[in-house]
C-alpha cells in the first residue's frame, strides 16, 4: 500500500515538471534530500572566516605559486638571487655613511653597520611583502576572472616567496655577527616569536591592501611611497631609545617597532628584550591579521567583477 502511494506521488511530480524546464522549478523531493548536494552557490552575506580546510586542499597551488614567484623574479638576470643580498647591503652602507657617520645617530653602542642591517632584514621583508602582496591580485587578474581557487593564496604566495630573501638576509647577518664577534644570549630564543609577529603583520596588511587594490588602483601608487615613509616610523636608522617615554606606547603600536628592537636584542644583545614593545606589537599584528582575513573574505566575492 505504502509503496504504491509513493509510486503515485513520484509519477505526479514528474508529470508536473514542464518538459521544457525553462519555466517552473521543482525543488528536490525528499528522496536524496538537501544533504546530497556537495555545493550550494548563493549570495553570501556579512563577514566570513577563511575556509582553512579548502586552503589546505589548495596547498600545492600555493607551493607552485611561491616557486613561480621566486623563479620568475630572478629569471634572465645575471646576478640572480644575489640581488637579495646586494640591495639591503648597499642600502645599509648608505645609511651607515649618512646616518651613522655624517649625522652621528647613536646605535646603542654597536657598530652602525650591523645595527642598521639587523633592522634592514625584517624591514625589507615587511616592505617587500607589502608591495608584492598588494599587487598580487591585480597582477593575476586574468587568473581571478578565469578560474576559481581560494583567492587568499595569491597574497599568501607573495608573502612566502619573500621568505627566501629574508632567509638570505639572515645568513648575511650571521656573517656580520661572526665578523664583529657577536655572541647572542638567551634572547635568541625569542627570535621565532618575533618572526611570527613579522609574518602576521606583513600578511595582515598585505591582505587588506591587496583587497583594496583590486577596486582602487591608488593603492599601487600609495603603497610604494607609504612604505618608504613608514620606514622612519620604525627604528630602522635610529634606536627606539631615542623616542621619548611619553610617546613610547603609541610608537609601539607599530608592530615593526617591537620586531626590530626585538631582533637587535635577540641577536646583538644591545638591550634587554623590550617586552613592552614586543607584546603590544604582537597584539596589534594578531588583530591586523584577523582583520585582514575577514576583510579579504568580504571583498573576495567582488574581485572577479571589478578586477
Amino acid at each position: 500500500m505504502n509503496h504504491n502511494e509513493l509510486q503515485i506521488k513520484n509519477d505526479e511530480s514528474t508529470k508536473s515538471t514542464p518538459p521544457s524546464g525553462a519555466k517552473g522549478f521543482t525543488p528536490p523531493s525528499g528522496v536524496g534530500g538537501l544533504d546530497a548536494w556537495d555545493q550550494i552557490l548563493k549570495p553570501s552575506r556579512g563577514w566570513q572566516a577563511v575556509d582553512w580546510r579548502e586552503l589546505y586542499r589548495y596547498r600545492d597551488l600555493l607551493y607552485f605559486l611561491v616557486v613561480r614567484g621566486i623563479k620568475a623574479k630572478y629569471a634572465q638576470s645575471v646576478l640572480g638571487v644575489s640581488w637579495a643580498v646586494i640591495q639591503p647591503l648597499f642600502t645599509t652602507l648608505v645609511f651607515t655613511v649618512v646616518f651613522g657617520n655624517l649625522a652621528g645617530i647613536s646605535s646603542d653602542g654597536v657598530p652602525y653597520v650591523i645595527f642598521s642591517f639587523t633592522a634592514m632584514v625584517p624591514w625589507n621583508y615587511f616592505s617587500g611583502t607589502l608591495t608584492e602582496a598588494s599587487n598580487s591580485l591585480v597582477v593575476n587578474a586574468n587568473m581571478i576572472t578565469k578560474v576559481y581557487f581560494p583567492r587568499i593564496v595569491l597574497p599568501l604566495a607573495a608573502a612566502f616567496s619573500k621568505l627566501l630573501d629574508f632567509v638570505i638576509g639572515l645568513a648575511v647577518l650571521l656573517g656580520f655577527m661572526i665578523w664583529y664577534r657577536f655572541l647572542p644570549g638567551w634572547e635568541i630564543l625569542v627570535l621565532p616569536v618575533l618572526i611570527l609577529i613579522l609574518l602576521l603583520c606583513s600578511l595582515g596588511l598585505g591582505m587588506i591592501l591587496s583587497a583594496m587594490a583590486v577596486q582602487y588602483r591608488d593603492v599601487k601608487h600609495a603603497s610604494t611611497f607609504m612604505v618608504q615613509l613608514l620606514m622612519y616610523a620604525a627604528p630602522v636608522v635610529y634606536p627606539a631609545s631615542k623616542v621619548p617615554d611619553a610617546y613610547l606606547f603609541w610608537y609601539s603600536l607599530n608592530p615593526m617597532v617591537g620586531v626590530i628592537e626585538g631582533f637587535r636584542s635577540a641577536l646583538l644583545s644591545t638591550n634587554p628584550m623590550p617586552w613592552n614593545l614586543v607584546i603590544v606589537g604582537g597584539g596589534v599584528s594578531v588583530v591586523v591579521f584577523v582583520l585582514g582575513t575577514y576583510y579579504f573574505r568580504r571583498m573576495e566575492k567582488v574581485f572577479a567583477d571589478v578586477a
Binding site: A36, W37, Q39, L41, K42, P43, T145, Y148, A304
Partner: peptide, 17 residues
Amino acid sequence: KILSKITEPTAGEVRIK
C-alpha cells in the same frame, strides 16, 4: 562564471553534486 564559482550570484542559488 557563476557555475564555476568565479563570481557569486546576486540572487537565487545553484546546487551542485
